[in-house]
Simulated assay, not measured.
Amino acid sequence: MTMSHKPRVLVTIPMFAEVLTALAERFEVDAPCGTATPIDWTADSLAARAQGAAGLLVAGSPRIDAALLAAAPSLRAVCSMAVGHNNIDLPACTAAGVLVSNAPDVLTETTADFGFALMMATARRIAESEHFLRAGRWTHWAYDMFAGADVHGATLGVLGMGRIGQAIARRGALGFGMPVIYHNRSRLDGAIEQQLGARWVDKATLLREADHLVIVVPYSPASHHLVAAADLALMKPSATLTNIARGGVVDDAALAQALRARTIAAAGLDVFEGEPSVHPDLLTVPNVVMTPHIASASLRTRRAMADLAAANLAAALSGQQPPTALNPQVLPLRPA
């Protein structure tokens, strides 16, 4: 008599109970976090837990590299519920025949909402003025009390004009009458530029002309410290910088120094180098709004991201084409 055996999948992050239940119908689910506190995975602890697993469901961490793949040779799919996948060594996975997927599209509008809100909070000094109020320091009105920068009609600069960058540009141009300039490795189609009212410029021009710069580029070794001290020096003293891309795209130490010196007026940051650690200098300057990497954090969107990751995992381990595979050339996967 032949015994059936469900492939084992390891869920490395806290997860919606409904998603875990759906996965359990097809797989043996190992979810050490359940719906509770995340685990701070080390390379060794992840390698030990991944033994015998056919698939991993991850987010922006932990690190999936050649060493892990060698330690867990049964792996056939790594599916992330994030868009960015710089924690996954895609070439190593492809060489090992391991399918990798991410979760684009489902978080575009939610992330753009947040990016625009963070930019507005930065421009209008909302966090700084709230701290002032909570400290009991509000005793009178003054014409210049927390006077910030206008958003409507100001020049919006977008560094990285992918899905999210374009969604931010639409909000600025259509909702706030903002002239939009952008820099990307390649120009958008002319029809898209016309629809967005966006003008391509080189990086230096973008930095010099933007009143509000929003950074939405993916992280890679090529984009590490894409905005560093020399770049910040090109910006207007009245300009703001908002980073919803990835930590490491901006040199956080140089940014803190520029904020302290008022080289730029203010910054809004949802991502940080070495997060969840934050550069200590950023914690001591008042003109920065900081949030803990929550740009996609609406319940509906986070559920959609989880559902897409689970759908990718189920398809990959069933020999089907996952909806958003990054290396579909590894299909069909080797058998379990």
Results as ranks from 00 to 15, higher is better:
Met3Phe: 07
Met3Arg: 10
Ile13Phe: 08
Pro14Ser: 09
Met15Ala: 10
Phe16Ser: 13
Val19Asp: 04
Leu20Asp: 14
Glu28Val: 05
Val29Tyr: 07
Pro32Tyr: 09
Pro38Leu: 12
Ser45Arg: 15
Ala48Trp: 02
Arg49Leu: 00
Leu56Trp: 01
Val58Arg: 01
Ala59His: 07
Ala59Asp: 02
Ile64Trp: 12
Asp65Leu: 07
Ala66Cys: 13
Leu69Arg: 03
Ala71Lys: 02
Arg76Trp: 00
Ala77Arg: 02
Cys79Gly: 05
Asn87Tyr: 04
Ala92Gly: 13
Thr94Ala: 14
Gly97Tyr: 10
Leu99Lys: 12
Val100Ser: 03
Val106Glu: 04
Thr108Lys: 06
Ala112Lys: 05
Phe114Leu: 09
Gly115Asn: 10
Arg124Phe: 03
Arg125Leu: 06
Ala127Leu: 15
Ser129Ala: 13
His131Pro: 00
Phe132Gly: 09
Gly136Val: 03
Gly136Trp: 07
Ala142Tyr: 06
Tyr143Asn: 03
Tyr143Leu: 07
Asp144Thr: 15
Met145Cys: 09
Phe146Leu: 13
Asp150Trp: 10
Val151Thr: 13
His152Pro: 01
Gly153Val: 11
Leu159Ile: 02
Gly160Val: 12
Arg163Asn: 11
Gln166Ile: 15
Ala167Leu: 05
Ala167Pro: 14
Gly172His: 07
Gly172Arg: 02
Gly175Leu: 12
Phe176Arg: 11
His183Leu: 09
Asn184Gln: 07
Leu188Cys: 11
Glu193Gly: 03
Gln194Pro: 03
Leu196Val: 11
Val201Met: 11
Thr205Glu: 12
Arg208Gly: 02
Ala210Thr: 02
Ala210His: 03
Val216Leu: 14
Tyr219Gly: 13
Val227Ser: 05
Leu232Val: 08
Ala233Met: 05
Lys236Glu: 03
Lys236Leu: 00
Ser238Arg: 10
Ala239Ile: 12
Thr242Gly: 00
Thr242Pro: 00
Ile244Arg: 00
Ile244Asp: 00
Arg246His: 02
Val249Thr: 09
Ala254Pro: 00
Leu255Val: 12
Gln257Leu: 08
Ala258Gln: 05
Ala261Thr: 00
Ala261Phe: 03
Ala261Gly: 01
Thr263His: 03
Ile264Trp: 01
Ala266Leu: 06
Val271Thr: 11
Glu275Ala: 13
Pro276Tyr: 00
His279Gly: 13
Pro286Trp: 00
Met290Gln: 15
His293Asn: 09
Ala295Gly: 13
Ser296Ala: 15
Arg302Ser: 08
Arg303Val: 15
Arg303Trp: 12
Ala304Phe: 06
Asn312Asp: 14
Gln320Gly: 09
Gln321Met: 15
Gln321Asp: 13
Pro322Phe: 15
Ala325Gln: 01
Pro328Arg: 15
Gln329Glu: 15
Gln329Trp: 14
Leu333Thr: 14
Ala336Gln: 05
